[in-house]
Design a protein around this nucleic acid. Structure first.
Length: 318
DNA sequence: AAACAGGTGCTAA
DNA sequence: TTAGCACCTGTT
């Protein structure tokens, strides 16, 4: 049974930048035959809110997200439209209701983030960011499922995006539950914990196989309790995540940013290190620790959004 | 064909 | 405390 749901966000949304910038790995561009007015649409899986309906897919649902106001946004010069919408198609299964999907989508897309104010603030802080943001207004930090996010970024170490996405997809297909639209949800830690490292190696994880296994084990046993992280200070949560093998500063920061919505982190990978070196250190090389300090002190509580824009900016070569 | 990719863990100074 | 290196696997 298919259903349409629409959500309203505070400030702009750029679906393409948001879903393809590398913070999430499972969204695929889709054609949307029934609605030619919707310019860009994507197929993916989002977590349902705790306390809401549980389905066979273990608290997840697939959906097709599309935006109708993207063209208008691009065409406008400085006029700030306060509200933007994203439309969803979902296949309702079990006791899932449109309202459940609406709530889940609002959270996933961080509907409360005050993008107009924050984009303005970051732009005023720094001409580099001003240029970056001008191109991709509406790039949003998502609020993903912590476990899926953790597993995905463990797989990202010394790896390429298409590879990461392929392995995550394979894990979902092999071990996950159908979530609609012919997609499966990412399998919970308990399910991965039943498999040995060899299984993950066979799926293309490479040397990260034992990292993934260690993560599944520690999370399933609650040695690292992903729910408890929500109540911790960012620094404590970061430390807790790093108890898992294969989780260092970069992966921990990505999880804190993309799943726990801690905007006061600044994940540093090779691209960001390069960007910080170029823009803020006159081309002199910087350690990842120094780049991180620079980002945190410059951008403070908006460091996460600053990082996303810098990353997008340098990756697209601008 | 050799090099390298969205890091991390281990070892040697 | 830190620099240097190995690590799967797919692509260029």
């Amino acid at each position: 049974m298919a259903s349409a749901v629409e959500i309203e966000l505070r400030g702009p949304v750029n679906l393409e930048a948001t879903l393809e910038c590398g913070q999430a790995f499972r969204w695929r561009r889709a054609t949307f035959a029934g609605r030619p007015d919707l310019s860009v649409s994507y197929l993916g899986v989002i977590p349902l809110c705790p306390g809401g309906a549980r389905t066979a897919a273990q608290g997840k649902t697939a959906c097709r997200a599309a935006q109708s106001q993207f063209a208008a946004l691009v065409g406008q010069s400085e006029k700030v439209t306060d509200r933007f919408t994203v439309a969803f198609d979902v296949t309702l299964r079990g006791c899932l209701s449109p309202e459940d999907v609406r709530r889940a989508a609002l959270r996933y897309f961080s509907s409360e983030d005050d993008l107009p104010a924050w984009e303005r603030e970051l732009s005023n802080m720094d001409p580099v960011l001003a240029a970056a943001i001008a191109g991709v207004s509406g790039l949003r930090v998502l609020q993903q499922d912590p476990w899926e996010c953790l597993a995905s970024f463990i797989l990202s170490a010394r790896n390429r995006v298409p590879n990461i996405a392929a392995v995550v997809d394979r894990l979902a297909e092999r071990l996950g539950h159908p979530a609609g639209f012919d997609l499966c949800g990412f399998p919970p830690p308990e399910v991965l914990a039943r498999r040995g490292a060899a299984f993950f190696r066979g799926l293309g994880c490479g040397f990260r196989d034992r990292y993934l296994r260690d993560a599944a084990e520690k999370v399933a046993s609650r040695e690292v309790d992903l729910d408890l992280l929500r109540g911790m200070l960012t620094g404590e949560a970061r430390e807790a995540l790093q108890k898992i093998a294969g989780v260092g500063p970069k992966v921990a920061d990505c999880v804190l940013l993309f799943a726990y919505h801690r905007l006061d982190v600044f994940p540093v990978d090779v691209w960001i290190a390069r960007a910080v070196s170029t823009f803020y250190f006159g081309g002199r090389s910087v350690t990842t620790a120094a780049a991180r300090e620079e980002g945190l002190s410059r951008f403070g509580s908006l460091a996460g959004y600053a990082q996303e824009h810098l990353f997008h900016h340098v990756r697209r070569g601008n």
